[in-house]
């Protein structure tokens, strides 16, 4: 495979991407099946979600994906100081997303919409909770990039690309969750 054709990062990481995508796809199928069974109840419960906040969260994560992509570009160009700034920006955007998500959960629970209040909310808290766990692991992964950038002896372009692939995967899952939970009516 030539340089221009190669898969970014470690090939084995793509196994994780595909496998975890299949697992999430199965969760989405279950959600859509349940939704088709109780469409009216799902629509009613869905109206409790704050769509503008969901859009803000999506923009935050998409921007974080852009920042980590810029980080990888800077690493390839051996501009490591600039790459460090982009990885810090990614962390900041990720933290902002997580803060928005926590605020949304607190507001919903305060309004009586809990994990057990309806089937829609069961799926909502489950899917957003699972995504949040992936996001928290993502912070560890970003920490690996930060460590690699800070130490020239341990710097590996492949590892940095692998870590950024993980972050993009977390972003991809959110876009799908956002579309299914907030947009689909």
């Amino acid at each position: 495979m030539t340089e221009t054709e190669r898969v970014p990062g470690e090939g084995d990481m793509w196994f994780f991407v595909v496998f975890e995508s299949l697992v999430f796809t199965s969760y989405f199928c279950v959600y859509l099946y349940d939704r088709a069974q109780h469409e009216h109840a799902f629509l009613k419960a869905q109206s409790a979600l704050n769509l503008p906040l969901g859009i803000v969260e999506t923009i935050l994560l998409l921007t974080s994906s852009w920042a980590i992509a810029r980080c990888v570009q800077e690493v390839r160009a051996a501009r490591y100081r600039s790459a460090q700034r982009f990885v810090l920006a990614t962390v900041g955007l990720g933290v902002a997303f997580f803060g928005c998500k926590l605020a949304e959960w607190v507001r919903l629970i305060g309004d009586g919409h809990t994990f057990t209040s309806s089937e829609f909310m069961q799926h909502f808290f489950f899917l957003t909770g699972m995504h949040a766990i992936h996001l928290l692991i993502g912070f560890v992964v970003l920490g690996v990039i930060r460590y690699q950038l800070a130490d020239p002896q341990h710097r590996s372009h492949q590892t940095i690309e692998t870590c950024s692939t993980y972050w993009h995967t977390v972003d991809l899952f959110w876009v799908l969750i956002f579309a299914l939970l907030y947009i689909v009516r």
Partner: peptide, 13 residues
């Protein structure tokens, strides 16, 4: 193989 390391993460999740 390293992919099995990642499969462990999938299983843990």
């Amino acid at each position: 193989p390293r992919w099995f390391g990642y499969l462990n993460l999938c299983n843990a999740l």
